[in-house]
Amino acid sequence: MATGLYGISFGALAVVAGLSVAQTAALSLLLFSGGSQFALIGVVAAGGSPVAAVATSTLLGARNMLYGAVVSPLLSLSGWRRLGAAQLTIDESTAVAVGQRTPAAVRAGFWATGIGVFVLWNVFTLVGALAGDALGDPRAWGLDAAAGAAFLALVWPRLAARTAQLVAGLAVVVSLALVPVTPAGVPVLAAAAVAVVVGLVAPPARPSLRTGGGA
């Protein structure tokens, strides 16, 4: 249910950002990672370059690579099934898979969650895109404010750790400072660069795989 409603907001916001209904549907089918998809349309909406849009989306998808490394040994797949599993490797499927106790339950949890989220996400993206197309002026409906709220909702569960709060504060300062002086899209990438530096120099904390919030 949460995935469906989240998909509707993505579909509507993507159309508001300037994508066609077909492009919006293609993102959910092919890119299939909620945070990355929202990031891509966010940069497009702000007038950023294609390179900045792809870079921001890809950086946000980097965590899926870590998820892949975690679930791959648990699933022990080969051939085309591995390609399918790769496409379905997202926050939700990984969280459900690693939460199971037996290898059979891991596999069942991964596939059921991955396929279920994929179907819901794509159906409701289309519903949202068609609705967004019919709405008209996005500002009158407050849809430009909805985008910021969507990103805040995605980051909210990730702000528990002290280091994350520090990075969040730095990201605010860097973004506000750079917006007036750099092309659109660059402030977001600069904030990511600051996070890389903090990640490399900060003292080690307890290791954990953080999941949650979004497809």
Binding site: T56, L59, L152, T163, A195
Partner: peptide
């Protein structure tokens, strides 16, 4: 941390 920074930005 990169995920947090991107989303906050």
């Amino acid at each position: 941390l990169v995920t947090v920074a991107l989303l906050v930005s």
